[in-house]
Simulated scan of single mutants.
Amino acid sequence: MTTEVYLVRHGETMFNQLNKVQGWCDSPLTIKGINDLKRTAQALSQVHFDNMYSSDLKRAIDTVHLMKDVNQVSEIGKIKKLPEFREVFFGSFEGDDIADTWEQVSLAAGMLPEKNITKIINQVGIDEFRQATKKADPRHLAENKQELDKRMVRAISVLRDLTIKEQRVLIVSHGDFIKTLAIKYWNRSDGKHDIIFPSNGSVSRGILYNNGQFEIVDYNVDAENI
């Protein structure tokens, strides 16, 4: 049996609004974030889910409970929190200004100073961007490509074990983690280059096969188009 997986990005947070690096650190949902999520929740209100899951970060937990409360056709019990689906970890940069952080990463990648992440990734590639982030981190705690890839594989394996008897599930995760999953598992990605960052409250849909294989079939779909 296959399992249909709805991957929802959490709503906008205070750190999103303030342009601060937000990986494993957390900040509350904004009013805009909650209102955007209500539209997503309403769009999914008539979709039956056998279960709902979330990252173990509070912004994801708050999001999944909003999805659960609005859904009219699912009977969801206690939400299981999965640390494997946390956001990418940015180490010492957590909570710092985004533009200043990317400038340091660009220098570590051998570039001239650059504050725009898209320009950095377009020049050096997503894999080198991950390596440069770890290199630029004074404590070298940020996840590099190998560490993140290992965690993604583990996340899919954990989800497969949990959903072996479930036909459709929803899981709330995070923008960079969902994007990186899509780079690896979406057939419209070449697996090497960057793709558009998913919007807050957007839905990406995947298929998890009983042999453990996973693929993204829809990516970054807004509530109005679900």
Rank of each mutant, 00 (worst) to 15 (best):
109 A>R: 04
202 S>K: 01
104 Q>L: 11
217 V>D: 06
158 V>P: 07
78 K>W: 00
169 V>P: 03
145 K>L: 11
156 I>A: 01
158 V>D: 10
198 P>R: 04
117 I>F: 01
205 R>C: 12
31 I>Y: 05
28 P>I: 03
40 T>I: 01
41 A>R: 03
72 Q>T: 10
145 K>M: 12
7 L>W: 00
88 V>D: 05
153 V>W: 00
31 I>A: 15
67 M>V: 06
113 P>F: 01
147 E>D: 13
155 A>W: 03
210 N>E: 14
23 G>Y: 00
23 G>A: 08
217 V>G: 06
160 R>L: 13
55 S>Y: 01
34 I>V: 11
150 K>G: 12
154 R>D: 15
118 T>N: 14
166 E>S: 12
152 M>P: 04
11 G>S: 10
39 R>L: 14
132 A>K: 06
160 R>S: 15
125 G>M: 05
84 E>W: 02
225 N>Y: 02
195 I>C: 08
122 N>A: 13
178 I>R: 05
80 K>L: 10
218 D>P: 03
11 G>C: 07
73 V>D: 11
146 Q>N: 15
197 F>H: 10
146 Q>E: 15
179 K>M: 09
7 L>Q: 06
152 M>H: 07
70 V>R: 09
61 I>Q: 11
172 V>S: 09
163 T>P: 07
75 E>W: 01
211 N>D: 15
194 D>L: 07
55 S>D: 08
147 E>V: 03
3 T>R: 04
174 H>R: 09
85 F>T: 08
226 I>C: 09
212 G>I: 05
209 Y>K: 14
103 E>H: 05
122 N>G: 12
107 L>C: 07
145 K>R: 15
143 E>R: 02
81 K>H: 11
